[in-house]
């Protein structure tokens, strides 16, 4: 067997094992979502703060930013100020809506979290986790942007900070609202 053949076999083996490793133990954060470009699920549930029923149908025809969060989630705390800043930046746009979906949480703890960290937009409670599954959520925080036609245009797994914030506002929200 020549040296070149041995090297080729090694390269092929390495590539196959890398694929297998990625498939079995890879971080789902790095797997492209299948939901971008598909119709967003219609969701409804009780408002975390008031308990009143809230449905996404009410915001049909608008650009909706949906953020999944929980009071026990450390990364959610990191991004919270940025979410408030983002809402403040776009709240006067008539076609922009921002909604939080409270995931795997207890209502009193979720309310206390909002009181402590601030709340300027509505939050729906995901009562039995079905909203998260409908959105293909892996964990929190996760953020989705739905366009005026109800199609998911963007998904981000992880906190909205630094470059992620800049990308979300400049390359996703602004073009969708101006387009």
């Amino acid at each position: 067997m020549t040296r070149t053949t041995q090297l080729m076999i090694l390269v092929v083996l390495f590539a196959l094992f890398s694929l297998l490793y990625q498939g079995l133990w890879g971080d789902p954060r790095h797997i492209p979502t299948v939901l971008v470009g598909t119709r967003a699920p219609v969701f409804e549930g009780p408002d975390v703060e008031t308990g009143e029923p809230l449905s996404s149908e009410r915001f049909k025809g608008k650009v909706i930013l949906v953020n999944f969060w929980a009071s026990w989630c450390q990364e959610c705390k990191i991004e919270h100020d940025n979410l408030l800043r983002l809402h403040d930046e776009y709240k006067d746009h008539p076609e922009f809506v921002m909604l939080g979906i409270n995931y795997q949480d207890e209502p009193p703890k979720a309310r206390a979290y909002l009181q402590r960290h601030g709340s300027s937009f509505s939050h729906v409670r995901d009562v039995n986790g079905t909203l998260a599954i409908d959105f293909g959520v892996y964990g929190v925080p996760e953020t989705f942007v739905i366009d005026k036609n109800g199609v998911i245009r963007h998904k981000w797994i992880g906190p909205i900070v630094d470059d992620v914030y800049a990308n979300l506002t400049q390359n996703v929200l602004t073009p969708l609202l101006e387009g």
């Binding site: 795997q104 959520v137 892996y138």
Partner: peptide
Amino acid sequence: VCQTETLWESGAPLAQQ
């Protein structure tokens, strides 16, 4: 969320849901 288990075997809250 646990990656190498099935939904049936997993004890994770998301798997339960």
